[in-house]
Amino acid sequence: MKSITVFRQFGEMLVAIAIAPLFAGWIAQCRAWMQNRSAPPLIQPYRMLRKLFDKDVALAETASPLFRITPYILFGTMVLAAAIIPSLATDLPFARAADAIALIGLFATARVFLSLAAMDIGTAFGTMGARREMMIGFLAEPALLMILFNAFLLFGSTALPSLVDGYRAHPSLMDPSIIFAAVAFVMVLLAENARLPIDNPTTHLELTMIHEAMLLEYSARHLALVEWASNLKLFNYACIGFALFIPWGIATHSADGVVAMLISDAALAIKLIVAGAALALIESLSAKVRIFRAPEYLAMSFLLAVLGLLVHLLLGAKQA
């Protein structure tokens, strides 16, 4: 193993940890502009985190060790996920240990722990949030899997770095199924990250909460870690999207050296800026759906992914 790849591996993780709150801040800023509000500064999430780390933890009397360890597990799994996703380079030694299916599993682990922690205190809102989160989760997972299936059919791999390499090797391969998968993926991304059509990240209305309801009992450093983990999750999802659908700029196995790294950094920055603005646009344009319409929304994304698969089987296979 070359030292440069190890360096890259850790570099990627650190970049993810550092940038994720910035990305969330950027989306919040774009949203504010689009909704004619005065925008919070870009570094608002960092200030928030710092404030939270400074505070004393107010831990519920009934909390068990599970509740206290969960923030660390959430943060750890999300950092680990960032290590697997090729956001800057595909030459990641760690990515071999877990392919995209394992990545979905990792996200599921985080979700299960958060739900369990929410049930731990035994409050009404916590359990409600856990139930809803699990409901969204079990509907979103098949859709995500079908999207991956689609990518597998195109490039014959479930490992994200290999997918990116495959994509870069055949840049002209523009299959219609990609479009379907991309739309489906954006829908899943919004649902999984508690964004607007399903959940409102800025709501203060407990009864409509999903993600926030689970965090109600967390405070101080625990809350900071959980929030940071959700920023990381959004960042990770965005990077999965880049890897699957717009992998240009990511340094491939063959590309070595400083130039490729600089290009990949620039590409990631541009993509994040554009994606953040696009997400903010989608969120500003859409209204929150009723919780019982959520299955319909997720069924739609699942169907899109499956349609992509079918279209590929019928149209794409013969030409490829």
């Binding site: 780390f53 831990l59 519920a60 870690l225």
Partner: peptide
């Protein structure tokens, strides 16, 4: 990887932040 990241996170939080904690009734 999981244990490593969780461990490092835990250590860093403990090293860089304070560990003050008080028990209160559930907020809800």
């Amino acid at each position: 990887g999981i244990l490593g990241t969780i461990g490092i996170t835990f250590l860093l939080v403990r090293l860089l932040a304070h560990g003050r904690l008080r028990r209160v009734p559930a907020w809800d």
